[in-house]
Design a protein around this nucleic acid. Sequence first.
DNA 1: CGCAGTATTGAAAAATATCAAGAGGGGTGG
DNA 2: CCACCCCTCTTGATATTTTTCAATACTGCG
Lengths: 261, 261
Amino acid sequence: MEKEDSCIIRLFSSYCALSEEDRRLLHRLEESPIETRAGQVLWKECDKASEFCTISKGWAYSFRNMDDGSRQILELFLPGDIIGMREFAFSQRLTGLAMIDDGMVCHFPHRHLVDLFSTSTTLTAVLFAIVSRHQALLTERLVNLARRSAQQRLAHFIYEIYERLNQTGSFNGGHFRLPLSQEQIGDALGLSSVHVSRTFTSFRKQQLVLRERHRVYLPNPQALAEVADFDNRYLNDSLKAILGENGKLERQSESSNAATK
Amino acid sequence: MEKEDSCIIRLFSSYCALSEEDRRLLHRLEESPIETRAGQVLWKECDKASEFCTISKGWAYSFRNMDDGSRQILELFLPGDIIGMREFAFSQRLTGLAMIDDGMVCHFPHRHLVDLFSTSTTLTAVLFAIVSRHQALLTERLVNLARRSAQQRLAHFIYEIYERLNQTGSFNGGHFRLPLSQEQIGDALGLSSVHVSRTFTSFRKQQLVLRERHRVYLPNPQALAEVADFDNRYLNDSLKAILGENGKLERQSESSNAATK
DNA sequence: CGCAGTATTGAAAAATATCAAGAGGGGTGG
DNA sequence: CCACCCCTCTTGATATTTTTCAATACTGCG
């Protein structure tokens, strides 16, 4: 991995070794980076959907506004993520998308992906793996919302972010930035902001999570994972060699990601 | 669509016209049909994952057993669905899979899909569209669990099944079979079976849903959809022409599926 | 007929939401 | 530099929703 690699190339190459040609194809997906501002809404429900986008800087979330005025935050996107794959088969957006931070995104039309299907089997398979992992995240979130207490939900949410930041190497020191208000966290967890506050207070008393403004310290990540009933297979098993046996596809060395659990 | 078409060919051809070659490729995914019994567990969490499967008869669900002994049902699979795409990037199953009905399934290894990527751009794109639609279902379920009351959840759940059965032409007369116990419904909705029972009772009083054993009558589907705050775009918009502009891919006539909403 | 799984109903308990009031913090304009 | 304001967070009291426990009824089946 050369240092000039973009986020998306780093993402793909964590799954599989890429040819120069593959890199060139991927670069097409990041042709026109756009600066975005914190709070900016990139699209709303029901907007026309004909583009994906990649995020190379900042955090974003997808959301759904409900009839009763409440809001559900569905996914949290960190740098390197691909956004909008849900709507590949749809003509309209099913969820809105908003920036949390200032950041940088690149749009590209659905058609570029179809082009990619016909040019590189490797990239197609990797893309499929990425979608598959994304679905695993979504599934886990679903379990979290449906079956766990407020404490567990919040613990799971924070620990998942901690793990994802770890994976992309964005975690250093015992703390990280969590640029979400308690209201936004509540919207993500299906809880009222008041209850999120109470839960944070309780975590502070238990020395599980110390939150200060937008900075979070985890004195004992392992303990937090246990509270959350966190099983990190859905995050850490996704770099397996899908492609090993096919002649055209090379298995990548495993050095880039330590096996866990 | 010839009458000899299998479920999966019908599924794919609802997105896009298929060549003979495409059909032949798809047939490979249904080589070895296996009879299954009601209640049979096809795989459990943590089992090795190297196969997808298609379901051609009967209903199935994916589930997750929680540490506290409860269970979450994540997805409901009806005939024609492809199962296990979540684990394409994983070496282990993340959820179990169980049959509701007696039925028929066909297993095929992940590698067949990679082969398909390298042989047919059309099928690849359609597959992607199918995955995308599946993700839309999952997202909608998430919103349902996180943001709605028990009444709305149940209404949404039932109405979604009603719509899906309509789409595959499996709905006739004013009623359909819903072969799930109230406990299973609760497991799917994150509710206790007791509360599911109360909610059904309330629906009966409101003449929204009449449930008798495993048969469900909807005197007024529209009213049910309104209670559920149901927006059917996520089910009915997914057959758009993704592939129109690419030379190799033909847009299908729209006759097979009426536009809705 | 009896049995096992499933469904219903009531009463009490638990979890979470809502409402409301106040506290803290950071940016902005004077 | 200060005052003010807006936004976010905290905390308490109360209301609502859903769960749990328990008892009883129902249903299909051997």
